[in-house]
């Protein structure tokens, strides 16, 4: 199936370029003809939003601008949880949306920016910004390939946050997200941590994430706090 093809592509990207997410970003630039550079900004509980990687001077400028100006495709992708595909920064619509960013980004040499959020629901790991020096769309196949890179980057960032949990657990079934919500409530921890705990548990038990998730949703498996329950 086509869906399986995407999954295989993500697994291949992770195996070829991981575990270093910055190598993956460079591979993305090298493999996608419509992309001239990539920047990765990540969110961590400790440091907030910060720039993790930029492939060249222009992508460095794009990341820096968005952090200092507080506006731009990356910021919007992060807050909206959806890709922001700005195909022509010179176009009035984008100029009105980010007046300062578009001016400076064009000056720096970027004409189009495609921001892909690395989100799993409310679990927000970061955003990848791809730029190109000429205006134009990220055509059909290129968009799906860019999304495969984004999915692979997400896997690597998750694996980094919980070392030793591997990266073979790619899945998007509803039960996984439901179980993540249940674990978050059981342990009273943010969704991002709950997601990591669920993955770690699957890895430790050498079962798939789907199977662990089903056990949680069916209430056959429960994550518990070590201390005595104080709240009702």
């Amino acid at each position: 199936m086509a869906d399986g093809a995407h999954r295989d592509r993500v697994i291949r990207l992770v195996a070829t370029h991981g575990p270093d997410v910055t190598r993956l970003c460079d591979a993305c630039v090298a493999e996608l003809p419509g992309v001239d550079g990539a920047g990765l900004s990540v969110m961590t509980a400790q440091r907030g939003q910060h720039v993790r990687h930029t492939s060249d001077r222009i992508s460095a400028r794009i990341e820096e601008l968005q952090l200092t100006l507080g506006e731009g495709p990356c910021q919007d992708a992060h807050s909206g949880g959806q890709p922001v595909l700005a195909t022509d920064l010179g176009h009035l619509a984008w100029r009105q949306r980010w007046p300062m960013f578009t001016t400076e980004a064009l000056k720096a040499g970027a004409a189009a920016v495609f921001a892909l959020p690395l989100h799993v629901g409310v679990v927000r790991l970061g955003v990848i910004d791809l730029y190109r020096s000429e205006a134009g769309v990220l055509a059909g196949d290129e968009l799906s390939e860019a999304l495969a890179f984004a999915d692979a980057a997400m896997e690597l960032l998750l694996a980094e946050q919980m070392p030793g949990t591997g990266e073979r657990l790619f899945t998007q079934h509803a039960a996984v997200h439901q179980a993540t919500g249940m674990v978050s409530a059981q342990l009273r921890i943010p969704m991002a941590q709950a997601f990591l705990r669920l993955r770690a548990c699957a890895y430790a038990g050498e079962v798939g994430l789907d199977e662990i998730a089903r056990q949680v949703v069916d209430r056959r498996l429960r994550f518990t706090l070590p201390e005595v329950d104080q709240q009702p």
Partner: peptide
């Protein structure tokens, strides 16, 4: 789905 899990 995540919110359903929390409420469940």
């Amino acid at each position: 789905e995540q919110a359903k899990g929390v409420l469940a």
